[in-house]
């Protein structure tokens, strides 16, 4: 992709630690999903062969589970600023966020030039994060119960089976959308740079995170330039 003529410069979006946390989480999630799926659908039985049999697959699921909980702890210990900024941004909802969701289907399918101005995260990203936070805790707690069932009353184990499956479906649904939008959707694809290199183009910030862009301009971190009309 040749870089755009209008967007001079980049703007910092994520710290190194935040980026590591994101990708460790993503890798652990994917591997947990993979090692869990053969118990959910027979069409994933081939996974057993990949991990050396069903028993090994279950052991791997537990190893990945430990890795899965590291990223939030990592952020809590070493990059509290990014963690709390993320939490604050994704947990703050405004009435106008509704509007985004009405306009989103068109954006999703063919692009919608009239999308309203967004903050650091748009409501779709916020929803993605919120649902991931809920499913994270649901998966970790139900997973722990399934890992150490002797330590819990039988009914708790039984409900954990259900919770684990519901949470993994919820999380995976969200992740499918998240991956599509960040890696395959032409309009939002450029956002990938943010979570790989830590920076995105000023131009992208302006058009997709207008409110955040305005803040940056106000703070003098970005020099306003009349790049193009949108």
């Amino acid at each position: 992709m040749n870089q755009n003529t209008a967007s001079k410069g980049k703007v910092k979006r994520f710290t190194k630690m935040f980026i590591y946390a994101h990708w460790i989480y993503a890798a652990a999630f994917f591997l947990l999903l993979l090692t869990g799926l053969p118990l959910f659908a027979n069409s994933f039985h081939w996974v057993y062969a990949v991990f050396g049999g069903p028993d090994m697959t279950q052991i791997f699921h537990r190893i990945f589970a430990v890795i899965f909980v590291i990223p939030p702890i990592m952020l809590l210990l070493f990059d509290r600023k990014s963690l709390f900024h993320w939490l604050k941004e994704v947990l703050t909802w405004k009435p106008k966020d509704i509007k985004f969701f009405f306009m989103f289907p068109k954006e999703f399918l063919v692009g919608n030039p009239d999308m309203p101005k967004q903050g650091f995260y748009n409501p779709g990203e916020k929803l993605n994060s919120c649902m991931q936070i809920v499913s994270f805790f649901a998966l970790v707690f139900s997973g722990l119960v399934l890992w150490f069932p002797e330590a819990f009353p039988v009914s708790v184990v039984q409900w954990s089976n259900l919770i684990h499956v519901v949470a993994f479906i919820m999380a995976t649904t969200v992740v499918i959308g998240h991956i599509f939008l960040s890696a395959f959707h032409p309009n939002s694809k450029p956002s990938m740079e943010g979570i790989t290199k830590g920076e995105i183009s000023v131009d992208y910030a302006k058009h997709h995170h207008g409110e955040w862009y305005d803040e940056l301009v106000e703070k003098g971190e970005v020099v306003e330039e009349d790049s193009k009309g949108a």
């Binding site: 755009n4 399918l109 063919v110 032409p186 309009n187 131009d203």
Partner: peptide
Amino acid sequence: FNKGEHHEEGGE
């Protein structure tokens, strides 16, 4: 159908 955004080309 998506000919909308052109960050790459910087077009209208």
